[in-house]
């Protein structure tokens, strides 16, 4: 009876374990159909490939290894594929972009780390390992994104940031409706996304509530980054700064004198003791040399 109970327990445990870990095993890098056909607006050439190589080495190589060398990180499960292989290369540009942007399985999302342009540069580098690859350029015109003007204002009453996206078309100013807008606060490493991405309304406006407890610099200044994406106009970014954080005046740890700091910031007691020792030795030396001189003169 007890045996049976145990068996049920084991089966239940295995099932549960499978359910919990299933997302890890699932090859869920299937991208949505509209993303699959997405094409780069950058023309892949030697320049973009070499720019992409630097980005690849900084962001991807630690797990995927050098393409063609089959030296990806084998201790991960599943093992990250060598991206020069046929299996990886048969993915479309859009699928690759989707995976880089959103991550897959253990692979993290690079949405907040790399801009779309940089992601395309990396794909450009990877396509260099595929001789059969022929690029199909997107019909999207990147020059259009230059027409976009983003404005950010802070509304104190609602404690939120209002973003407005307009485009200075030849025909006149057009509000960009239905664009995806995200708001980030810059920190030491990477960006911190505030709330979720929202869509602009018919006026091209979007409102994102801003928290009250984000630490800023001495005056409470925060650097914010707004990203807008719209199928027609592409990705546009804008940085701005507002005095809306909590004023924080924390001196850097290496600003004070400390044993472990650089020599110009040595603790005064160390400098004092060391100099005292040295000076008393020099005084003794002077005294002795004087005595030797006296002996010689007398």
């Amino acid at each position: 009876m007890i045996q049976k109970k145990n068996n049920i327990g084991i089966i239940a445990f295995v099932l549960l374990a499978f359910l919990v870990t299933a997302p890890l095993y699932a090859r869920n890098w299937k991208s949505p159909d509209d993303q699959k056909d997405k094409k780069s607006y950058l023309k892949f050439d030697a320049t973009t490939a070499s720019q992409g190589e630097a980005l690849y080495n900084a962001n991807c190589a630690s797990c995927h290894g050098t393409p063609g060398k089959n030296n990806s990180l084998k201790s991960l499960n599943p093992i990250p594929p060598d991206l020069s292989t046929k299996a990886s290369q048969q993915l479309t540009d859009g699928e690759l972009l989707y995976i880089v942007t959103n991550g897959a399985g253990l692979m993290p999302s690079f949405k907040n780390i790399l801009s779309e342009e940089k992601e395309w540069l990396i794909i450009s580098y990877l396509r260099g390992f595929n001789k059969e690859y022929v690029q199909q350029l997107s019909k999207f015109d990147p020059a259009k994104s230059k027409l976009v003007k983003l404005t950010t204002t802070f509304d104190k009453a609602s404690q939120s940031i209002i973003i407005q996206a307009i485009a200075n078309e030849k025909t006149g100013v057009v509000a960009i409706a239905g664009a995806e807008v995200s708001l980030f606060v810059k920190r030491y490493f990477g960006n911190f996304q505030v709330d979720k991405s929202v869509k602009t309304d018919a006026m091209g406006k979007a409102t994102i509530a801003f928290p009250t407890d984000i630490p800023g610099d001495k005056t409470g200044k925060l650097n914010v980054l707004v990203k807008m994406f719209e199928a027609n106009y592409g990705e546009v970014q804008k940085t701005d700064s507002f005095d809306i954080g909590i004023p924080t005046d924390k001196p850097a740890l290496n600003e004070k004198r400390a044993i472990w700091n650089v020599v110009s910031k040595a603790p005064l007691w160390v400098i004092g003791l060391y100099s005292m020792g040295l000076i008393s030795f020099l005084m003794l030396l002077a005294y002795l040399l004087l005595n030797l001189r006296k002996i010689f003169k007398s």
Binding site: Y287, L288, N291, L292, K294, I295, F296, K297, S298
Partner: peptide
């Protein structure tokens, strides 16, 4: 030997040093 002559003054200087 620095001009050593063995004078009391020299002895004293050596002793002090």
């Amino acid at each position: 030997s620095l001009n050593w002559k063995g004078t009391p003054e020299q002895h004293e200087l050596i002793k002090k040093s």
